[in-house]
């Protein structure tokens, strides 16, 4: 099925702006058809063999092809029946009527992540990093394109694991674990570890609303890294807590790396990204600017930043 011919080695900013038809079965493509996503993917997975490929790429953990995600940003967040009735009769173009703005957050992104690889993602606020991560996790559906994920995915996203403020930390560990698909026994086995690692101490049996934001972040980090996932998606979690905890978190990350886990890491901390990632993907305005070695990509990202050209697109 796969025909990753590594002919293109540099994925430029426009490598992702190809036609939207890449989600059709690959076998239907002619041999000389333009296949930028595959080409880009080849560039994005340096370890990909040149020939003798199996039907399925067993060493690929995440495959993203021409992913588009847009969402309706509802300006009036709480849509009501009353509001809808009140607007009846108003013209559609009336600015009061069009409360919905389509945000095209991810615009044709393609890349592969190999098993055991750590992919860092850098980009400005609003570049589509978090949306893309949620797309990979299957939380937000693509508009176009496809995401393939091999194995159990655990998400550690900016808002926490999905904590409920009314419940205690311990109960939240249980709900988060069950939602992530763990069994009760698996969670019980890990609970002490999680509590210990998070360092929230006696607060664990207090409602979550009594927690400081640092405690929440630490607990979230402890929960999602304890899920024993094949693939871990992390959004800005390393910034949780104080310097001690950040060091501990980085250690935990390295342990997870040693266990051959696939990690996608979104962070604004260039140091964490440089230290932990095998490759870095630079995202701007929903498009891939560059994928490559951490040092080079981060350097170019930062100099583009300095030059005020950070937002491409």
């Amino acid at each position: 099925m796969s025909d990753l011919d590594a002919t293109t080695t540099q994925a430029g900013p426009d490598a992702s702006s190809h036609d939207a038809g890449s989600d059709e079965p690959r076998s239907e493509r002619g041999p000389d058809a333009e296949v930028p996503p595959e080409a880009e993917a080849a560039a994005a997975s340096p370890g990909a063999p040149d020939d003798g490929r199996p039907i399925r790429d067993e060493d690929v953990a995440i495959r993203v092809r021409d992913l588009h995600i847009s969402y309706r940003s509802v300006l009036d967040k709480r849509q009501t029946l009353r509001g809808r009735i009140n607007r009846i009769g108003r013209h559609r173009d009336d600015p009061d009527t069009s409360m919905v703005k389509i945000v095209h957050a991810v615009r044709g992104v393609s890349f592969d992540v190999s098993r055991g690889e750590v992919l860092g993602i850098v980009g400005h606020n609003g570049a589509g990093k978090s949306t893309m991560l949620r797309g990979i996790a299957g939380i937000l559906p693509p508009d176009e394109g496809r995401v393939e994920v091999a194995g159990q995915v655990s998400t550690l996203l900016a808002l926490g694991v999905g904590f409920n403020n009314k419940l205690s930390g311990r109960e939240n560990i249980l709900v988060g674990g069950l939602a992530a698909g763990l069994s009760r026994r698996e969670i019980d086995e890990r609970a002490d570890d999680i509590i210990d690692f998070s360092g929230v101490g006696d607060f664990i049996d207090m409602p979550l609303r009594t927690y400081s934001s640092g405690m929440r972040g630490r607990l979230a980090f402890a929960v999602s890294t304890a899920m024993d996932p094949d693939i871990l998606l992390i959004d800005e979690a390393l910034s949780a807590g104080d310097a001690d905890f950040r060091e501990k978190a980085a250690d935990r990350m390295r342990t997870l790396l040693g266990e051959g886990r696939t990690i996608v890491l979104v962070s604004h901390s260039m140091n964490s990204v440089r230290d932990l990632s095998d490759r870095v993907l630079w995202l701007a305005a929903g498009r891939v600017v560059e994928v490559g070695a951490p040092d080079e990509v981060i350097q170019r990202y930062q100099s583009a930043d300095d030059a005020g050209r950070g937002r491409v697109g």
Partner: peptide
């Protein structure tokens, strides 16, 4: 199009 026999692949 990815994943070995020991991993369930989810396609979105």
């Amino acid at each position: 199009t990815i994943g070995g026999p020991d991993h369930d692949v989810t396609v979105h």
